[in-house]
Design a protein around this nucleic acid. Structure first.
Length: 341
DNA sequence: AAGATTTCCAACCGCCGGCCT
DNA sequence: TAGGCCGGCGGTTGGAAATCT
């Protein structure tokens, strides 16, 4: 049985935006008496509002410990990580972000983070790459790439690539998005201005975290900097978004740092850069490129997609193991010098 | 400059679970 | 156990503000 509304229509309680006078009454009452029973509070505080409305106003706006202003990158990262684990449990997520309310986080997710994840080709519900192709068309527009010619970067990988059909070419954009996920999934790869210290590197090579991780209040593991002078090496996904041409993108192979600056706003610069910066990534891209060719002519698009993404499965695993990183670092260490831009 | 459209977020709504009688 | 009360939660919406045409 549904419960009766807390405020009957006929009771004549006020709805809509709160006035400064109402706010003042509520704050004064609660600071003197505490909120007590929300149902009886409005009467005692001299407010013509229902208790629910008072509770909401207090919890989401008037509470003294509410933090205002833009969400920090750290907060973005925590929200995304927690959302991947908890889903739309906004109050639980808010519990890990002091001063932020569930309502605020919910709004921020729906108006900012959700859109950005979609732009990156990541499903905001599953936190995995989207496998439909519709969004790739819009992404190509976003990146300023013609829908019937994805640009020289494709030819850079395979001279025959210009002959590939639209779907295949768009799939390559998906690869870039997958790459974003890989980097996003493991903060060790991110380092516009940070590098791994020897202990961290050794820990990775050993396939362990070297006991350096710490459990954040949100219960997730993150690498921790070794001293105050070295800032935390984990970087939020917002930096990774730079691959899409909004900010910068960093890639750290353990000894050298590669950055693709703001000016590099197109795939035609980004893809070759990543290929040369990381042999393992380049190799993956080339393998997939081969799959594209062999899959051409097939009328089964899902089979095509499956072949194209097959070599990425390992890298896209939810948790990349220490041995994976050993492989990545070993391959990356063969680089002679950083890519200059 | 003005109207149209989009974005953003405070507030509402309905449902649920825990507690009490 | 059933039914009512209450606080809390997540989805939705109205309208102000910002942006576009």
């Amino acid at each position: 049985m549904g419960r009766a509304p807390c405020c009957e229509e006929s009771s004549g309680v006020k709805k809509g935006p709160w006035t400064p006078e109402e706010d003042q009454k509520l704050v004064e009452y609660i600071s003197k008496h505490g909120h007590g029973s929300w149902r009886t509070l409005p009467k005692h505080a001299g407010l013509n509002r229902c208790g629910k409305s008072c509770r909401l106003r207090w919890a989401n706006y008037l509470r003294p410990d509410i933090k205002r202003g833009k969400f920090s990158e750290e907060e973005d990262r925590i929200i995304i990580n927690l959302h991947s684990v908890l889903g739309n449990k906004w109050s639980k997520i808010a519990g890990h972000l002091p001063g932020r309310t569930d309502n605020e986080i919910k709004n921020y997710w729906n108006t900012h983070i959700r859109k950005k994840l979609l732009q990156m080709g990541i499903d905001p519900e599953t936190h995995k790459p989207r496998t439909d192709f519709n969004h790739l068309i819009s992404l190509s527009h976003l990146l300023g790439i013609s829908s019937n010619h994805m640009g020289p970067w494709v030819n850079n990988i395979n001279p025959l690539a210009s002959q590939l059909d639209l779907t295949t070419q768009l799939t390559k954009v998906q690869l870039l998005q997958n790459l974003l996920q890989i980097v996003n999934a493991n903060p060790y790869l991110l380092g516009n201005s940070h590098s791994l210290n020897p202990l961290q590197l050794q820990s990775l090579m050993n396939g362990t975290t070297g006991g350096q991780e710490h459990v954040n209040p949100d219960g997730l593991l993150f690498p921790q900097a070794h001293n105050e002078s070295q800032e935390g090496i984990s970087k939020p996904w917002t930096d990774v978004q730079g691959v899409c041409g909004l900010e910068s993108f960093g890639f750290n192979n353990g000894s050298n740092i590669y950055t693709i600056p703001h000016q590099s706003q197109s795939l035609e610069m980004t893809i070759p850069a990543l290929v040369s910066a990381s042999p393992v990534i380049g190799s993956a891209i080339k393998q997939v490129d081969g799959s594209c060719n062999t899959a051409q002519g097939s009328t089964d698009q899902s089979a095509n997609s499956s072949a194209m993404f097959g070599s990425w499965e390992k890298l896209l695993a939810d948790e990349i193991t220490g041995s994976d990183w050993k492989e990545i670092l070993e391959l990356s260490s063969t680089l002679a010098s950083p890519v200059s831009w």
